[in-house]
Design a protein around this nucleic acid. Structure first.
Lengths: 201, 201
DNA sequence: TGTACATCAGTGAACGCGCGTTCACTGATGTAC
DNA sequence: TGTACATCAGTGAACGCGCGTTCACTGATGTAC
C-alpha cells in the first residue's frame, strides 16, 4: 500500500499551508518568499513544487481557507437571527471583527491578483456567493417585495459598501478611526441603511 | 541666465509624467517599467533620476495629478447643488463615472503602497480631505443636527461605502454588474442611504 | 564679442539583487517474484 | 521472508530573468573676465 506516501504528502501540504498562513499574517502577501515558507515548514525549497503547483497555488489555497473561516465566523451571527435589521448589523460587525483579527490574511484575499487571462477559479466564486447569501437572508425579511435576483444584487452591494468602510479604515488610507470608534461608525452606518431600506420606494 | 536649463528640465518632467500616466492607464501599475517610461518620454533611462528621485516618486506625482483631476471632475457636481439628496447621488455617480473612464489610473491611487515606515505624505492626506469635504456639504444640509466632527467622519464613511461598491464591481471580483446596471445600483444605494439619513434617530 | 573654464543635464552599459523555478541527484518507500 | 528493481518524495545548488539604480563619460549651456 502507498498510504504512508500519501500521508506524508498530506502532512507536508499542511505544514506548508500553516507556514504560509503564519507568514502572510505576520508580514503580508507582498513580503512572502518561497524560501521562508519552506524553511518554516521544515522542508527544502524544491519540495514546495512537489506539494503545490507553484507559490501562487499555495497562496490561493490559503486564501480559500481564510474565506471559509470568514464565512464560518460570520455565519454564526445569522443562525441566531431575530430581527432582520439587527442581524444585518451583526453581520457587518462580525465582518469587521474578522477583518481586524485576521488583518493580513483578510487583506490577502483581495490583494491577490490572478495573472492576466487567468480568471478566479469557479470554487472561489462559489465561496464568495455563499458569503453574499448570508446577507440575502435578513435582507429578504426586511424587503419581502424583492425577488431573488434583486436580493442577490442588493446583498452584493451591501457587502461591498461595508467592505469599503472596513477596508479603507483598517488600511489607514485616510486618517483611520481609532478602534471602538470604527465599530460604532459601522453600526450607525448599517442603522441608516436599514432605516432607508424600510422606506420602500 | 539659467532659464533654458530650468525650462528643459520642466519639459522633461512633463514628458515623463505624461508617459507614466499613459503607461499606467494602458497597463496598470504592476506592469510599469522605468525603461518603458523613459523610452516613451524620449530620454535615456538614467535621465529619470535627474528629474525625479526614483520611479516611486514619479508614480506618486501621477497619483497626485489623478486625485486632483478626480476632485475637479466631481466638484462640478456640487456647484450646481440643489437638493442635498440629489447632490449626494450625483457625487456618487460622478465618482463611478471617473473611476470607469480612468480605471487603471484611479486604481493606481489605491493600489500604490508606501514602503514600510514611510507614511503617505501630508499633501496627499490634504487632497483626500478635499474630496471628503465635497460630501460634507450636502450631508450638512441633510443633517443640520450634526457637528463638524460628525460630518467629517460620516462623509468619510459614505465615501468609503460608495468606493467599495465601485471598486469591487469594476475590479470584477464578484460577478460584476454590466455597465448601466452598476449606475442604477449605485443610484438606488444612495437613495436608500438618503432615506435612512432623513430618519434622524 | 570672444575665449577659457565650470556646471550640469543627458547617456546607456553595467551592476546588483531578489527570488521563483528547475534539475540532476539521493535515499526512502513500494512492488514483483 | 528476502532480494532486486522501480518509483517517487525530498534536496539545495544553480539557473534565469526582471528590473531599479548607479556611474563614468559627453556635450551642451552658463559664467567670468
Amino acid at each position: 500500500m502507498s498510504a504512508k506516501r500519501a500521508e506524508r504528502r498530506e502532512d507536508l501540504r499542511e505544514r506548508l499551508l500553516a507556514a504560509t498562513t503564519a507568514r502572510i499574517q505576520a508580514g503580508g502577501l507582498k513580503g512572502l518568499r518561497a524560501r521562508d515558507v519552506t524553511a518554516d515548514a521544515g522542508c527544502a525549497l524544491g519540495a514546495l513544487y512537489n506539494a503545490f503547483a507553484d507559490l501562487d497555488d499555495l497562496i490561493i489555497q490559503v486564501n480559500s481557507a481564510t474565506l471559509k473561516r470568514l464565512e464560518a465566523s460570520v455565519a454564526q451571527v445569522v443562525a441566531k437571527g431575530t430581527d432582520a435589521g439587527d442581524t444585518l448589523k451583526a453581520l457587518a460587525l462580525g465582518y469587521l471583527s474578522f477583518a481586524r483579527n485576521n488583518y493580513a490574511l483578510w487583506r490577502a484575499i483581495f490583494e491577490h491578483r490572478f495573472a492576466d487571462n487567468v480568471n478566479a477559479p469557479q470554487w472561489q466564486l462559489a465561496e464568495h456567493e455563499a458569503l453574499i447569501d448570508l446577507i440575502a437572508v435578513p435582507l429578504a425579511k426586511l424587503r419581502p417585495d424583492m425577488n431573488e435576483q434583486q436580493l442577490r444584487i442588493r446583498s452584493r452591494t451591501l457587502f461591498a459598501a461595508v467592505h469599503g468602510i472596513v477596508a479603507i479604515s483598517l488600511e489607514g488610507r485616510f486618517v483611520g478611526l481609532p478602534g471602538p470608534e470604527l465599530e460604532a461608525e459601522v453600526g450607525r452606518f448599517v442603522d441608516v441603511l436599514v432605516a432607508g431600506l424600510k422606506q420602500r420606494p
